[in-house]
Amino acid sequence: MVVIWIASILLEARSHPWVTKRWRTVKQMIRNKLIEHKQYINKYGDLPEVRDWTWRY
């Protein structure tokens, strides 16, 4: 689920100028979030931001 969530963010943001200029920072933020998520789910289950995530129409 998290991989799909991250992939959707990357696909959405890929052409955004802010992402293009700051790609290294964005990649590190994503890596940090994945590490945080793994640690959290090992202890408590899914992060609320992942568990409660829905498509916004």
Results as ranks from 00 to 15, higher is better:
M1K: 13
M1Y: 12
V2S: 00
V2G: 11
V2R: 04
V3L: 07
V3F: 07
V3M: 01
I4N: 15
W5T: 01
W5C: 04
W5M: 02
I6P: 02
I6K: 06
I6Y: 05
I6D: 01
A7C: 02
A7T: 07
A7P: 01
S8Y: 07
S8C: 06
S8N: 03
S8M: 10
I9C: 01
L10H: 06
L10Q: 01
L11D: 04
E12W: 08
E12G: 01
E12K: 02
R14D: 15
R14G: 11
R14V: 10
S15A: 12
S15Y: 15
H16C: 10
H16A: 13
H16W: 13
H16P: 06
P17K: 00
P17Q: 00
P17G: 00
W18T: 12
W18D: 11
W18F: 10
V19S: 02
V19R: 01
T20G: 05
K21P: 07
K21C: 11
W23I: 01
W23H: 11
W23L: 12
W23Q: 14
W23F: 06
R24V: 04
R24G: 13
T25E: 10
T25A: 10
T25L: 15
T25D: 12
V26N: 05
K27D: 15
K27S: 12
K27C: 15
K27A: 15
Q28M: 09
Q28F: 12
Q28A: 11
M29T: 08
M29V: 04
M29L: 13
I30N: 03
I30L: 03
I30Q: 05
I30D: 05
I30P: 00
I30H: 05
R31M: 03
R31Q: 05
R31H: 03
N32L: 01
N32M: 03
N32R: 02
K33P: 02
K33T: 04
K33F: 09
L34C: 02
I35Y: 06
I35G: 01
H37K: 07
H37Y: 05
K38H: 00
K38A: 00
K38N: 07
K38E: 04
Q39I: 07
Q39C: 09
Y40A: 08
Y40E: 03
Y40G: 10
Y40L: 04
Y40D: 07
N42L: 05
K43C: 06
K43Y: 04
Y44T: 08
Y44R: 14
Y44S: 08
Y44M: 11
Y44L: 09
G45I: 09
G45R: 03
G45N: 02
D46T: 02
D46S: 02
D46G: 00
D46L: 13
L47S: 00
L47G: 01
L47M: 13
L47V: 02
P48L: 06
P48Q: 06
P48G: 07
E49T: 08
E49A: 08
R51C: 07
R51P: 09
D52S: 10
D52V: 03
D52I: 05
D52G: 11
D52M: 08
W53H: 15
W53I: 07
T54Q: 08
T54W: 07
T54Y: 09
T54K: 15
W55S: 06
W55A: 07
R56W: 12
R56K: 14
R56V: 11
R56N: 13
R56T: 14
Y57L: 13
Y57S: 15
Y57P: 14
Y57Q: 14
Y57C: 11
